[in-house]
Design a protein around this nucleic acid. Sequence first.
DNA 1: TCTGGGGTCCTAGGACCC
DNA 2: TCTGGGGTCCTAGGACCC
Length: 366
Amino acid sequence: MARWIMHVDMDAFFASVEQFRNHPELVGRPVCVGHDPKGGNGRGVVRAASYEARAKGIHAGMPVSKAYRLCPDAAFVDGTFESYSIASDEFMDVLREFADGERIRRASIDEAYIEVTQRCENYEHPTALAKEIQEEIWQRTRLPCSIGIAPNMAVAKVATGMNKPRGITFVGPDQTTIEKFLEPLPVDAINGVGRKTTQRLNESGIETLGQIQRMSIPELWPAMGRGSVWLFQRARGIDERPLMDNGPRIRKSISKDLTFMEDIEPDAVDYLHNAIRKMCTRISDRLKQKALRFRTVTVKMRYDDFITIQRSKSIPVETDDTRILERMAVDIFDHKRDPKKPVRLVGIKVSGLSETPEQLYLTEFL
DNA sequence: TCTGGGGTCCTAGGACCC
DNA sequence: TCTGGGGTCCTAGGACCC
């Protein structure tokens, strides 16, 4: 019994929220969400680019300095995460109304899967339902989205990307149609195949999903190892995972990274300690706000040569004490960093999170 | 063009316990 | 004295995603 799964993806989400909700005067203009380019000297990257900005060659992940050079007239907005979070909730609320039962899975802040097998019985064709959903999202959130429809999540996700913005792409339902659809696409069209895997496959002469479709698992093994079975199935559009509600998100970690405006000389110890303490305070605030405690602290250090290391330490009992967090973080930094290298970035992460409200004194563990 | 910040999941070795 | 496996926790690193 075939299923119908929709993958709904907001178009240029952060940029669209800025244009259509936060700053209507930016509609029709190139918009980059990200850090201040500081006249071309900023160190951040673009988080999201409106379609007008994309027309100038700007894309997400591009250094803001380059984006600024390509289009100095673009609006550079350092957005507020909260407005995106609110918009996301509104959009998920709309989807929930269309999903069969609880068959909705939030994949990230701007995309979700819904199963609509039953709902589709009332429609001439699944695309008619998709159009209705798209229109409802636009009416209620003022945000554009694209929808992919297929018999499973993996193919639906690929489909969405084929036709953006405000697109609807339908694939299926039979196996031949699915394989034909995937055949010409590059291997990185598959969600889960990133830069490294693409490189490894390309080095073996594998560029397209069609090539993989014509291979056996043993033939795939030299390039993919344990991942061979998985890729073998995905390249053919096989994905049996049931679409289930992934429930309330249980947070696994909270982190804060800071790239300095300029690399910090290794002997500027006070400055570095200060930066670490400030980040610890921010993390601690978030922990308390969510009534969470941590057991593990990880410090990330990136040097001027971009080499990045992470070192962590755990304590036996969870805590949310800011002073303990600061002491652990500073301690790891002092003992594990390379004292000769200028520092580009420091990051602090807490994990091993729990809600257990235990009153314990932890000083003895330090 | 020099390369952010927030996450998740997986692997693998060593310690330690039974 | 030498030798098993299995399970869990900790640490480090890698790949990936938005």
